[in-house]
Design a binder for these strands. Structure first.
Lengths: 342, 342
DNA sequence: CTGTTAGCGCTTTCAA
DNA sequence: TTGAAAGCGCTAACAG
């Protein structure tokens, strides 16, 4: 059917020399006559010889493959991180295998097993919101497969980590709201088993505390996910309160957008009656009316840095045993959704 | 440092039997005594034996790897297709390698070369907007690597294709606008070398023609990309026209959103003065005010179907030589951005 | 029922 | 400067 690709022995046979000579000729080995070398190289080009990676992989016990596990790929957030990772690994000879855990711990475990089976050389992981233990991670570590965690932490698991300072981002956002005169600041919070969820909540609480604003339980809306629908739900509850908040700090842009939709629909002036602030700064957020104030995160850089750390582990196997713990800084992007007219 | 994984010969040595016996025991081979079989299986479990995929790959000349090439991963559109592809290939033993061409023909070619080098078993490709020839594709085809094209066509290239009927989607959208009373319908069109761009433009033109509305060159805004910024640009030009259009049909939601932002900012009533319709139906589109009318596409299903076609090629090598040419139907989702008050 | 052998494509000693 | 041989881990044909 299809002619199978040329091998070293094909070249050797045609030239009546040994396989090892051919191999040497193709690798700039010093001990080889100029004559045979050129002959080999010519024929190799003619036959369109490509080294068989499968054979090399077996020989080197390396797959040149990096595994990536994210909760989902269809979000601006994770796809941007992946973009950063890809950019760093391009031209390194490594290729990337991407899987989605879909926030399922069971799925995370089975993906991890599959990755172990195909013997990836290293892993970049953002754990699910359900992940509490790290036994499944450690199993791979014990096999000598390095893991770098990004975005989401898994407390108790020692590894290289690249996280964003969510606490600081939330603190910045809420302190800014206070500075613009808000006092009854609501927070729409995501599931508490997610570390970043707690960090943002704590940033919110501490900013209030710093400015001596007493925390009001009723102003904290806990929702079970991160989509606009969840924001819708929270905002509807909000509308039933005796006294409305004067600002909403949402866990992320998706929630903020859903909330803003409901509030505007109810005739509430944004930002004059209620300021709205999101988190993640998704590209379309600035096209809402009013454009959404949000906490920007260095997502692409997070991918780049995680990848760089993993690559250095892979390249320099003798690396010191200590783990890197990087904390990237987010940045508040102020837009109209929070600029109250004074 | 790390103990290397157990091999067949490890088991064989410890049990004082031959490697092939071990192999047979682990593969339910009929010719094997119950006794040795259980012994082998026990020890294998104890040693946590995992077949070495690298060796198997070399033996079978298969990598169990599928390559995916998309223009970008950070869009709802392509990440959803990928999601569909992943769901179909999960539990098939294949794993996926994803690369971005970033709309660069040169990059597409180099990715293709890399994919050939690592010997992927098959490829799923959505070509760049610059791709005009198919020589680089055919090179892989000649190596026996099947390719399935999705979303974007590459005219002149014979292969399995899974496309969406963009013409029909555009036609539906524009005919709907006409039915709601619009007569001066503008179109914001993407780069013409992109096949889907032309199909949507043609759908627009034919809908006008069918309803005897003469086409007005000035109402067709050609932009160089697909982001909200491009919509902003077009809308600003629009605002300088002597007579405004009464509707805008944008190439996609991104453009529509950018345009809507500018139009609303200029005090124009949407939909009463200008109806706005997008394409792709991104999840956040329904949270704009007014919520955006858009042409929904079966993106997830497109991924599923492309993957299914590729898988069947891979499984049944003796497949007939004919190519499948699937055309999925889009669907107009009507929301407030186009419901004029009569 | 089990062992021996060859081979997938390549690199790398060791000899010549 | 070149060749022969071993081995990476596994399967399968062929003998026993």
């Amino acid at each position: 059917m299809y002619k199978s690709p040329a091998t070293l022995s094909d070249i050797a046979r045609q030239l009546n020399i040994s396989i090892s000579t051919v191999s040497r000729a193709l690798h700039d080995h010093p001990a080889i006559s100029k004559n045979t070398k050129t002959k080999v190289i010519q024929l190799a080009k003619k036959l369109n010889y490509q080294p068989n990676m499968l054979a090399l992989n077996l020989l080197n016990k390396k797959t040149n493959t990096i595994g990536i596990i994210v909760p989902e790929i269809t979000s601006y957030y994770f796809s941007s991180v992946i973009h950063g990772i890809q950019d760093l690994f391009s031209n390194t000879g490594y290729h990337l295998i991407i899987s989605q855990s879909e926030e399922s711990f069971k799925k995370e475990k089975s993906i991890l097993e599959a990755m172990a089976k195909i013997r990836v050389d290293g892993l970049l992981i953002s754990p699910t919101s359900k992940t509490k233990s790290s036994g499944h991670f450690n199993k791979l570590i014990n096999d000598g497969i390095p893991i770098v965690l990004f975005d989401r932490d898994c407390p108790g698991f020692s590894a290289d980590k690249v996280l964003v300072d969510d606490y600081d981002g939330a603190f910045q956002a809420v302190e800014y709201l206070i500075r613009t005169g808000c006092r009854r600041i609501a927070h729409i919070s995501a599931p508490p088993n997610l570390s970043i969820s707690m960090h943002r909540l704590n940033g919110y609480l501490d900013a209030l505390k710093k400015h001596q604003i007493s925390m009001d339980e009723k102003l904290i809306f806990k929702v079970s996910g991160f989509t606009p629908e969840h924001g819708v739900k929270a905002a509807k509850q909000m509308l039933e309160m005796a006294e409305l908040p004067d600002a909403v700090f949402a866990f992320n842009d998706g929630i903020a957008i859903g909330a803003m939709y409901v509030l505007k629909g109810a005739g509430i002036q944004i930002p004059n009656q209620i300021s709205v602030v999101g988190f993640d700064d998704e590209p379309h957020s600035s096209y809402f009316i009013p454009p959404l104030t949000s906490v920007w995160q260095p997502v692409y850089d997070m991918g780049l840095l995680s990848a760089r750390i993993l690559l250095s582990k892979l390249t320099d196997k003798s690396q010191k045993e200590s783990f890197r713990d990087e904390m990237l800084k987010p940045e508040l992007i102020v837009r109209e959704s929070s600029k109250k007219l004074l």
